[in-house]
Computed example of a mutant assay.
Amino acid sequence: MSGYLGPYKGERYHIPDCRRGRQPTVPREVFNQAHSSLRSVIERTFGVWKKKWKILKTMPKFSFDKQVKIVIATMALHNYIKRHAQRDRHFEESKNYQNEGTEEEMDEESQETNGPGSQEIEVLRNQITASLMGD
């Protein structure tokens, strides 16, 4: 499936918005809160990963195939360390960091509504929303 599973436009999105006010009860806000929360976890994970593996920040001018192998290798090592290391300073630092969501609004261009796969994405977003609401 091609496309981007973004939040619903026009609804509260960022976690701090939900923490400051009432908890979301409207289905689209419930989805957006879950989306924001998951996005924060993913961003934090990528931050730890890039901090641990400096090569990812300045990816040398390797061929695309070699870059893919570097990404796969560092993620495999990252996951192994996460599962088996008793202590790791990068993971410890990330536990102390409470990412409250990004401050900037979602980029309008990344929320295409008429791009390839947009109808499939909308159906999927609605199915996920229904499952979050217990429907």
Rank of each mutant, 00 (worst) to 15 (best):
M1I: 07
M1D: 08
S2C: 10
S2Q: 12
S2P: 07
G3L: 05
L5A: 09
L5C: 12
L5F: 09
P7E: 01
Y8R: 03
Y8C: 00
K9D: 10
G10R: 04
G10Y: 02
E11V: 05
E11W: 04
Y13V: 01
H14S: 12
H14L: 07
P16N: 12
P16W: 12
D17A: 11
D17C: 08
C18E: 06
R20G: 04
G21V: 04
G21E: 09
R22E: 15
P24E: 01
P24T: 00
T25V: 10
V26I: 08
V26E: 13
V30T: 02
N32H: 06
Q33K: 15
A34D: 07
L38C: 12
L38D: 01
S40G: 14
S40K: 04
I42N: 06
I42L: 08
I42H: 05
E43H: 03
R44G: 04
R44D: 10
R44H: 03
R44V: 13
T45Q: 06
T45H: 03
F46A: 07
G47C: 10
G47R: 08
V48S: 14
W49F: 04
K50W: 00
K52G: 04
I55V: 15
I55G: 03
I55A: 01
L56Y: 03
K57Q: 14
K57H: 07
K57P: 03
T58R: 05
T58S: 15
M59P: 04
P60R: 00
P60L: 00
K61P: 03
K61V: 07
F64Y: 13
F64K: 15
D65Y: 11
K66V: 15
Q67F: 05
Q67R: 15
V68P: 02
I70W: 00
I70K: 01
V71N: 01
I72V: 13
A73R: 01
A73G: 04
T74N: 01
T74I: 10
M75A: 15
A76G: 08
A76Y: 03
L77D: 06
L77T: 02
H78I: 03
H78E: 02
N79D: 01
I81Y: 02
I81E: 06
K82T: 02
R83V: 00
R83F: 00
R83N: 07
R83T: 02
Q86G: 14
H90I: 04
H90Y: 14
H90R: 07
E92K: 10
S94D: 15
K95W: 11
K95G: 09
K95M: 12
N96K: 15
N96T: 14
Y97S: 09
N99Q: 10
N99T: 05
N99S: 10
G101R: 10
E103F: 05
E104G: 11
E104I: 06
E105Y: 05
D107R: 08
D107E: 13
E108N: 08
E109S: 13
E109F: 08
E109Q: 11
S110Q: 12
Q111R: 15
T113L: 09
T113H: 03
T113E: 14
P116R: 06
G117Y: 09
G117W: 09
S118K: 08
S118C: 14
E120R: 14
I121T: 15
I121E: 13
L124H: 07
L124I: 12
R125Q: 03
N126V: 05
Q127H: 08
I128M: 10
T129E: 11
A130G: 02
A130H: 06
S131Y: 05
S131C: 05
M133G: 01
D135I: 09
